[in-house]
Amino acid sequence: MTAMDPGPKRARRWHIAVFLAPAVLVYTAIMIFPLFATLFQSLFTRVEGQQVFVGLRNFTTLFGDPRWSASFWNALWNNTWFFIVHMLVQNPIGILLAAILSNPRLRFRGFYRTAIFIPTILSFVIVGFVWKLILSPLWGIAPSMLDMVGLRFLFGPWLGQETTALTTLALISVWQFVGIPMMLIYAALLSIPDEVIEAAECDGITGWSQFWKIQLPLVLPTIGIISILTFVGNFNAFDLVYVSQGAQAGPNYGTDLLGTFLYRTFFGFQLQLGDPNMGATIASVMFFIILIGVSIYLFLIQTRLRRYQF
């Protein structure tokens, strides 16, 4: 690593503290402290204006009490499905686009890369409303476009039906974020040395078999990182559902994710009052879900992936 301070030995190197202080202070005060304060609050409940310690009872309420558990398991399952759709659609499309783009002889690469990444920089508010308008039966862009290819009969109010709303939202989110796996895999593919590819070509491995046998195994660590980023992002999602379906996550809570469930519980909605302690409980459950996911990735997956040093 770096060389030691060659100057005269100072008893205390205050400058280290000065360099670290602003970042550590802001980070600790605004991020770490509230995070643990939130975890802590999930162990309390409010009785007549007083915080009373109740241990893990908020969690048993959340998982078992019929008033809470139905919403919680519904949100958890919806969130899982949201994640599955991303893994099955977003990442394969991202890999496919990156594989095509990484061909050095392809022209207009910069144009395609820039254009396909555009949805990713737009805010959820824009994305949510844009798709709401386009899929709206009122405006009729989607049905008339389906009509052009003779598939009019497929059209339905996708965002309004309980059976299709969640998948539609997940696909909208995929549309928005496909640029991220594409870029990361594209970068990983570019870092494979030419000699490896040339050696494969000498052995007669070209085209798709080259992709499957040579390139894909080499970018597996990147696919691992993308999966965990997708996981954290999905189990933390809120904006898209809030913008397009409202805090109620309609129809009939069909698109309720843990994020919207947390928002409604914390702030209340319509006649139900907000409950900070139950909100903290849901946030804690989300914290542990993300922690488990990240740990599985770090300790089980990442250590088993072979990394190749070039």
Binding site: M31, F33, P34, L35, F238, G259, A283, V294
Partner: peptide, 21 residues
């Protein structure tokens, strides 16, 4: 490592306490 913790854990999960703060 302490400073890298925040890369994986979203700050939103501390919202309840951030608002109180």
């Amino acid at each position: 490592l302490y400073l890298a913790l925040g890369i994986m854990i979203p700050i939103r999960l501390g919202t309840v306490a951030i608002l109180q703060l």
